[in-house]
Design a protein around this nucleic acid. Structure first.
Lengths: 352, 352
DNA sequence: TGCAAAATCCAAAGCGTTTTGGAAAATGAT
DNA sequence: ATCATTTTCCAAAACGCTTTGGATTTTGCA
């Protein structure tokens, strides 16, 4: 508890009104007194009490994030930290706070309700949307500005979202592999009740169809995206009678696991078997130093966090503007993990 | 903005006072009316406005976490997400909020100051303490309850902390390797201006000394703990004229990199070269499925988060009790990455 | 100089709670 | 039936800020 406005005003022989206005940049205060006030505030390390301010203004200057911790598979999504970091930057630049609520996913809906009913936040970010995600309807009904990180297939009503082009991203990656001559391409995906995983799968399927290939269900796996999953998936897939010559992975960690399994089998990545992974550009999972370890579809989730935060702030400052959307394209970067399919000449020089 | 207390009171023909007391469990209210009030509150989904409540009580029911994002090496510590998850659980159980502030590390001190001056939090958690960390003095001076996740060598004044026994942990791991006959043991550490890294190094050195070995500076590396660092460190170390036969790693990700480099060199882990890593038991970095991939010193950082949160809550609810401390031991789990040093019979059967 | 307009300041109300200090009603003892 | 207690409730103040509606002073212009 620092200095209070009243005290500061008293020490300056001014009314609280004037001091408040001076600090908040209202025009009806003399330039000289404004400076006097500002200096005094600085010296006293005065910061208006957030609670009192928001009680008076009705705005909290806080954005809420609810993270559901599923009791069953207790995984904290690793992209979470970087996304939050990006969002946090934007918030602190704008003078906003971030309030986090981590709840068992059975209480998730109530967590959103509570935050809003208690007047704790001006807006929210929705993480990890699933297909037909009910949170979107809930929040629109509650009338709170919010932005979804991702989209939710099946939800028709308009809402604000920011997403990467998962479909095109995985379509391109698949095409790239096809051009290298690969015909049996495995998809090692995240859980496909997650919207992003579903879209990636669709992109992969579309590319196969356009190439006139029928997808083989045996080559498609989904699970929580860990290194261990990548390892077991690749191990099993390589033991098939007709194993894949290429892999598409949904995360760097999974790709690590793929690589380990491939090495175990005595394959060399980029020569015997190709791998493309999605790379969220996580700060602690750099994809190689100079030349990337993995050929990857890359998009910084930290940037996404920053942008999503800016979007929700914009929704708050200009409420009338209707849903905002932002679709970010990924870049396909070529690393050492891809090469022509063994025993087949590439159809065509791979475009970019 | 949900129902207000006044409205609820009006709808019940009661005064706000009575309704407040009924809901907060004060004795001076009839059991029947209390029930009536509680039911009505439930029906209306009434939640007291956090801001108003904390303005009135002087307590915010919020704990602050400041995360510094260094502009130079923009790494978000991967343990952060799991720690936060653990803490978040404890907070939401206790009806507390978590407010997060992510700032460039040049503004870090000011971020702590601000949070407190603005009356935004009742207590704080300090992340990633360095040697002689100035934040500890700052917060004690400001008089806010706080708990440090880790310790800060060089800070003498007492403070509350929760830490794992990094020293003993790495001492034991080193001893384990020595018992397996290893004599040249490399340490692939985190940045040693971090307190935890320094302690691990000391534990390692102590074990060597006790075994009558002089540490070789060429075998000790430190950097940001990424897979890529692990890879480059191991690659360089294995090219030494007299390469190590064992590695100690400070994180699972680094260990992944070590393993990749070793494989590149044609070594088999656990036979040609041994590896022990610290394992924070991160949810998305499981150490194998049945039998651990890596022999490891394990301690759940999520548990640590939970406990640290409980400690700060306890400091708040009982202010007089002086500094709380908690030293957690790690468990040394044996996986597939360790074995007897090549060309030397183990001194002794490894205890444990 | 005089007067309207602009500039500068302030008192007081209000935001949604909790809490203090009673008041009114019910109860118990005599 | 009377008085002292205890129950049960309420009016009003307070938390620290913003904001409305004036009041006072200064400025601009004729």
């Amino acid at each position: 508890m620092g200095v209070t406005l009243k005290e500061l005003a008293a020490s300056l022989n001014l009314s609280p009104t004037t001091v408040s206005r001076a600090l908040n940049g209202y025009p009806e205060v003399n330039a000289k007194t404004r400076k006097r006030v500002r200096d005094a505030a600085e010296r006293a390390n005065y910061h208006p009490n957030t609670r009192a301010r928001s009680l008076a203004t009705g705005r909290t200057h806080a954005i809420g994030h609810v993270i559901a911790l599923s009791d069953s598979h207790e995984i904290v999504n690793p992209v979470f930290a970087d996304f939050i970091a990006g969002a946090g930057e934007a918030y602190s630049r704008a003078g906003y706070e971030m309030v986090l609520s981590m709840v068992p996913d059975s209480d998730e809906a109530q967590a959103y309700r509570d935050m809003i009913a208690r007047g704790a936040v001006d807006g929210m970010i929705v993480h990890g949307p699933k297909l037909n995600d009910p949170r979107i309807a809930l929040l629109t009904q509650l009338g709170v500005p919010f932005v979804v990180h991702g989209r939710s297939s099946g939800v028709d009503a308009p809402y604000s979202w920011l997403d990467i082009n998962n479909n095109r991203s995985f379509r391109r990656a698949t095409e790239f592999l096809l051009q290298l001559g690969h015909r049996r391409i495995a998809l090692v995906n995240g859980l496909e009740n997650m919207d992003f995983a579903m879209r990636r799968r669709n992109g992969y399927l579309q590319a196969l169809h356009e190439a006139g290939l029928t997808p083989d269900p045996a080559l498609m796996r989904q699970a929580e995206m860990t290194e261990v999953f990548g390892h077991s998936a690749a191990t099993e897939l390589m033991r098939l009678p007709d194993p894949p010559t290429a892999f598409l992975s949904s995360s760097m960690l999974v790709a690590y696991g793929l690589r380990r399994a491939l090495v175990d089998q005595g394959c060399r990545m980029g020569r015997d078997v190709s791998v493309i992974t999605h790379d969220d550009d996580l700060s602690y999972l750099p994809n190689g130093r100079d030349v990337p370890l993995f050929t990857a579809t890359r998009s910084s989730v930290r940037d996404a966090g920053r942008k999503a935060a800016e979007m929700v702030l914009s929704l708050i400052s200009a409420p009338g503007q209707g849903p905002l959307t932002c679709l970010m394209e990924t870049t396909l970067i070529v690393g050492e993990s891809t090469g022509p399919a063994p025993g087949s000449r590439p159809r065509d020089t791979a475009r970019q």
